[in-house]
């Protein structure tokens, strides 16, 4: 029975596979569909004034759309929906603080990294100062993130509670349901900047991984990937990548972070 089903599916898949190049489709439709976060400033969040999703990821997405010469359409996503959105063809690209991993690279293609960060923690002041304390704590993470996987793998005694998005995990932290939450450092810095009672929390100065962030691209779309990579390199060369970075993490923002990573340093 399963064989029969698998055969039926395989037949259907071979029909689906005979598609035109995605880049041509994007040009034909005149729209680049990108999945970005809607609740994770400064990477992607809904601007209360314009009600549009804005952020660092969206700026990079806009640059790619401009390069192709089409309109940008941003679809909101949470961490867990990123890969299904891409593999089911609902979006052309994912720009949502998407960590490049070998495992993920089997399912989809990545651009060269355009951002770098490390997995860090946010806790009430005085609860957490070193990684050894993680085992035994209840830690909030986001479903479908590398953070969740790394934490479970490297700290098997930590109790991981996974939520749909980082702010939900933070609410659980604030209510005392978890003792710490984990995410990429810059995302936590961005989150903490928006919290009214931020003086009660801290991001302990250690990280448990180094992550490179790339654009998620459907598997095998080489022309699209080359174009994305070319755009990213040009943005770095022209200084626009630094401008985008400064717009969200520069000295005059709510979450100033020095820019240590340059696009093209790590291919």
């Amino acid at each position: 029975m399963r064989k029969l089903f698998a055969f039926a599916v395989a037949t259907l898949l071979s029909v689906g596979a005979a598609q035109a190049d995605r880049l041509d489709d994007i040009k034909k439709d005149g729209v680049l569909r990108v999945a970005s976060f809607d609740s994770n400033p400064p990477f992607g969040s809904v601007d209360p004034a314009t009600k549009q999703i804005t952020g660092l990821d969206v700026d990079f997405a806009q640059a790619i759309a401009d390069k192709i010469g089409v309109k940008l359409e941003v679809r909101p996503t949470n961490p867990a929906n990123r890969i299904p959105l891409l593999t089911s063809g609902k979006v052309d690209l994912v720009l949502a603080n998407f960590t490049i991993t070998e495992e993920r690279a089997k399912q989809l293609d990545f651009s060269i990294p355009y951002f770098a960060s490390g997995q860090q923690f946010l806790a009430k002041k005085g609860t957490l100062s070193s990684p050894d304390q993680l085992n035994g704590l209840r830690i909030g993470a986001d479903k479908g993130t590398t953070n969740e996987i790394v934490l479970r793998r490297d700290f098997p005694k930590a109790m991981v509670v996974a939520f749909d998005d980082t702010p939900f995990a933070f609410t659980a932290l604030r209510n005392g349901n978890v003792q710490a939450i984990t995410q990429d450092g810059p995302k936590l810095v961005g989150l903490l900047a928006k919290v009214p009672d931020r003086q009660n929390y801290e991001i302990p100065a250690f990280s448990i991984s180094n992550d490179y962030i790339g654009v998620g691209i459907p598997k095998g779309e080489t022309r699209l990937r080359d174009l994305v990579n070319e755009t990213l390199r040009e943005l770095e060369k022209s200084g626009k990548a630094a401008t985008i970075y400064d717009r969200w993490f520069g000295p005059n923002t709510e979450q100033p972070l020095p820019r240590l990573f340059r696009i093209g340093e790590h291919d």
Binding site: D38, S39, V46, P167, F168, F170, T171, R174
Partner: peptide
């Protein structure tokens, strides 16, 4: 769950932005 911006989803968005008023 799939990010359709109906009432519950936009409420979650607003909650995620305001963070302390669930």
């Amino acid at each position: 769950v799939i990010g359709v911006p109906e009432l519950s989803f936009v409420a979650a968005q607003v909650n995620n932005r305001a963070m302390v008023y669930p």
